[in-house]
Amino acid sequence: MTNKSGHTPKIPQNFQVSIDSFSCPITTDIAVFGYVDNRLKLLLTKRAVGEFTDHWLLPGGAMEADETLQDCASKILFALTGVKDIHFEQVKVYSALDRHPIKRVITVSFYALVKPEDHPFSLKGNVEQIAWFDIDDIPKNLGFDHAQIIHDAHLFLKGNLKDRLVVGELLPKTFTLTELQNLYEDILGLQLDKRNFRKRIFQMDILKSTGKVKAGVKGGPMLYELE
């Protein structure tokens, strides 16, 4: 049996963790998606020091001994951008042998979906530029394997939208079903069938009718809120 690199893996004598077990740095990279003017955006940074200083990067950095992955992601995002108090979801683990030019590094990616106006960023640490990019116009000069991480995070986000409602922060406190469908269509880049969309949303059992209608709109559509 061979692995993807074409080498026959060595079979260890002991599979248990020991003091001599292999270890390497673990990092977290965070794909922060924003919703601006009916378009999905991605937050990227440029750093003044380190590897790939002339490239755009996802906010990311190394986990310390006393941190969880979530702790690390929160710490790094705030340290590099000033953004804090947002909800992350884990996407994938990347462990290619040559993904970092200095040494072996394993990274765990996360994604978040936010309203940029609610989370203003600021230049911090060694970051010299921060910008939101349209998801269809991401710069080509990305560092490390961040093009793949971004691709995977975007697919994961769209998959989550289809399976469950994960756009709570992007919605007002009360909203109509049409407003909810428009949000989905903008993020997914698809036109959805109205009847099928509403059937699917109600199957999720996460909306509650407010018993009120939206004023000033023809037909007086019902207002909903999240359970």
Rank of each mutant, 00 (worst) to 15 (best):
P116G: 09
S21M: 08
A31Q: 06
K75E: 08
D71I: 12
A96T: 04
V32G: 02
S95T: 06
F78C: 09
R39Y: 02
L42I: 14
F110L: 02
S95W: 10
H87R: 15
S23I: 07
H87W: 14
W56G: 09
S95C: 11
L69M: 09
F22H: 05
T107P: 01
A48K: 11
P101K: 12
V49T: 12
I30H: 06
F22D: 03
A112M: 01
H55M: 08
G34N: 05
L97D: 15
S74V: 05
Y35M: 01
D66F: 10
L40H: 01
H119K: 12
C72V: 13
H87G: 08
F52I: 12
R39I: 00
V108P: 06
F88G: 04
I86F: 04
V105Y: 01
L113P: 07
S109Q: 03
K41F: 05
D71R: 01
V49R: 13
R99Y: 02
T28R: 05
R99D: 14
K115R: 10
D71F: 06
M63I: 14
I106F: 14
L57Q: 14
L43D: 07
V93N: 12
D118K: 13
A65W: 11
D98H: 13
L69E: 07
F52E: 13
H87K: 15
A48V: 03
D118L: 13
D29N: 13
I26K: 06
Y35F: 15
I26N: 03
G60H: 10
S109V: 01
F22V: 00
L44M: 07
I26D: 00
D29I: 00
L57S: 10
Q90H: 09
